[in-house]
């Protein structure tokens, strides 16, 4: 099965069977799935929580740059989203 092409206009969403939530006890976002858990670092958590299936990667990047007063994040965001799609944490909607 081919991986979907990920580009700036892709709209990623957390995949079926996965759930993203903030865990105060771990001071981190975690991604929960059948009998497993991935503890996310800050940037991974901030990207994933913006993956709502409606927002494009380009808009996610703009939002992150504004939230963290940063610039030039697009390559990092694209790299992580591509990784997360490969890991099946994210699916791409159109």
């Amino acid at each position: 099965m081919n991986q979907p092409v990920v580009d700036a206009m892709s709209r990623p969403a957390v995949a079926h069977g996965f759930r993203l939530q903030w865990e105060a006890a771990q001071n981190a976002h975690v991604l929960l799935y059948p009998e497993g858990m991935i503890k996310l670092n800050t940037s991974a958590g901030e990207i994933l929580k913006r993956c709502d299936g409606a927002t494009t990667i380009a808009d996610i990047t703009v939002d992150l740059e504004r939230a963290f007063a940063a610039s030039g994040l697009s390559a990092d965001v694209m790299r992580f989203v591509t990784f997360a799609v490969e890991k099946k944490w994210l699916k791409i909607l159109a």
Partner: peptide
């Protein structure tokens, strides 16, 4: 970046 704590 990730910690995987799958049971088995």
């Amino acid at each position: 970046m990730v910690e995987n704590s799958r049971v088995n």
